[in-house]
Amino acid sequence: MKITLTVNATDYPLDVEPRRILADVLREDCRLTGTHLGCEHGVCGACTVLVDGEAVRSCLMLAVQCDGRSVRTVEGLAGADGGPHPLQRAFSAEHALQCGFCTPGFLMLAAGALDADPDLAEHPERVDSLVGSNLCRCTGYAPIRRAILRAAEEQQRLDLQA
């Protein structure tokens, strides 16, 4: 099928088999390898991307389902100036990564949550629930939780200054 994926504000006209998953198309056809495939069953969350602003497991979504929709991957997190996103800075500052395999999924999950909930910093229980939906085998969840809360607080400060 001929589809057009809009990934990180760039259009990718593609001819894909209807059964191909979004994660494979992002990695192989769009050459955006930041989206990782872990379990391929929607359990681990390493493949999380945003589709029309909603966090989805790209291993469970067919690429044809995204025809004409907006997809955002970890490569699209950088700011307009090319600098790191507040989440990326917070993950570094809080040492919220070790091997890094799960990190793109956590970043995209958190980015979607921050976009949807500007008051996330005031609701750490929401962050607990969010962090529990993806798997990490290296760092444990405390540094990831701290990083998301730190980024949420920074985002709140930036919103207040604007």
Results as ranks from 00 to 15, higher is better:
D117S: 09
G132D: 08
P84G: 04
D67T: 13
A55G: 08
Q98D: 04
C66D: 05
L107H: 03
F91W: 08
V71A: 06
A110I: 05
F91C: 09
D115W: 04
L135V: 14
L97Y: 13
A116C: 10
L97P: 00
E125M: 05
L130E: 02
G76F: 12
P104R: 01
H95D: 10
L109E: 08
A78Q: 09
M108V: 00
Q65A: 13
V56E: 06
P118A: 14
D81L: 12
G53Y: 09
R69T: 07
E94N: 08
L87P: 04
D119M: 12
P124G: 12
A113F: 01
P84D: 09
R126H: 14
L97H: 00
V49C: 10
L130I: 09
A142K: 14
V74K: 01
A63R: 12
A63N: 09
E125V: 09
G83K: 13
L130H: 00
E122K: 13
G79R: 15
A113S: 12
L130F: 01
N134T: 01
M61I: 15
E125I: 07
C66N: 08
M108E: 01
E75S: 07
C102F: 00
E54L: 10
A142G: 07
P86F: 02
L135E: 03
A93E: 15
T139N: 02
C99A: 02
A93S: 14
